[in-house]
Amino acid sequence: MNKMNCDLAALLFDEFRIQSRVREIGMQITQEYKDKVPILVGILKGGFMFLADLCRSISIPVELDFLAISSYGKEASSSGVVKIRKDIDLDITGRDVIIVEDIVDTGLSLQYIKEYLSKHSPATLKTCVLLDKPAAHKIDVSFDYVGFEIGNEFIVGYGLDYNEQYRNLPYLGILKEELYK
């Protein structure tokens, strides 16, 4: 048995359920942008798997870019201070942009990203999040596309990490509390 599996308190979503939901979101984006070429801005590092699968499930042309931020450091909860580690490379002025984020806890990081990208004057700016934790929100946030709504557990796998580990799990699980407290 994989040691990482032993670190999980529970399996939240298996590979099949994740891929099914990602395909549904991809079909929705395909329909809504059928005559456009949206730019998907993936938020690194956690959103890379979701972005890769999502863009493969969209059947219209898309462009990809990345923004890396940090608000956690090596902690299990956000510090509330957002820093840009890698900026976007594409000019998004007048373009349709979809932010692709792995998880929304407090909502503060996503709010910062939206405000930051809005300064680049995109034609439209939408958000696509794999996981939403409404119980953890510190501000009112809304999304255009949501994979799953979850409780306030600490989730790893499918790109999400704790201390840079567990990203390579192909599913999403709840990390045992004693490992991060």
Rank of each mutant, 00 (worst) to 15 (best):
N5T: 07
L11Q: 12
D14E: 09
E15H: 11
R17I: 07
R17S: 15
R17E: 15
I18A: 10
I18P: 04
Q19A: 12
S20C: 10
E24S: 13
I25S: 04
G26F: 06
Q28V: 01
T30F: 09
E32M: 08
I43F: 04
G46N: 02
G47Y: 05
R56C: 12
S59I: 05
F66M: 00
F66T: 01
I69V: 15
A76C: 08
R85D: 10
R85N: 12
K86Y: 07
K86G: 05
K86F: 05
D87A: 11
I88F: 11
I88W: 07
D91V: 11
G94M: 11
I98P: 00
V100A: 07
V100S: 10
I103F: 12
D105M: 10
D105L: 08
T106S: 15
T106F: 00
G107Q: 05
L108G: 03
L108V: 11
L110T: 05
Q111K: 14
I113L: 05
L117R: 06
S118C: 08
S118K: 13
K119Y: 04
S121F: 06
S121D: 10
T124K: 14
K126R: 15
T127Q: 09
T127Y: 04
V129M: 02
L131N: 05
L131F: 14
D132P: 07
D132H: 15
D132C: 04
A136L: 14
H137S: 13
H137L: 13
K138V: 05
Y145Q: 13
V146L: 13
E149S: 15
I150L: 12
I150C: 15
N152Y: 06
E153A: 09
F154R: 00
V156F: 03
G157M: 01
G157Q: 02
Y158M: 02
Y158T: 03
L160G: 03
D161K: 00
D161V: 04
Y166C: 06
R167H: 07
N168M: 08
N168S: 13
N168Q: 12
P170G: 07
I174V: 15
I174N: 12
L175I: 10
E177D: 14
E177C: 08
Y180P: 11
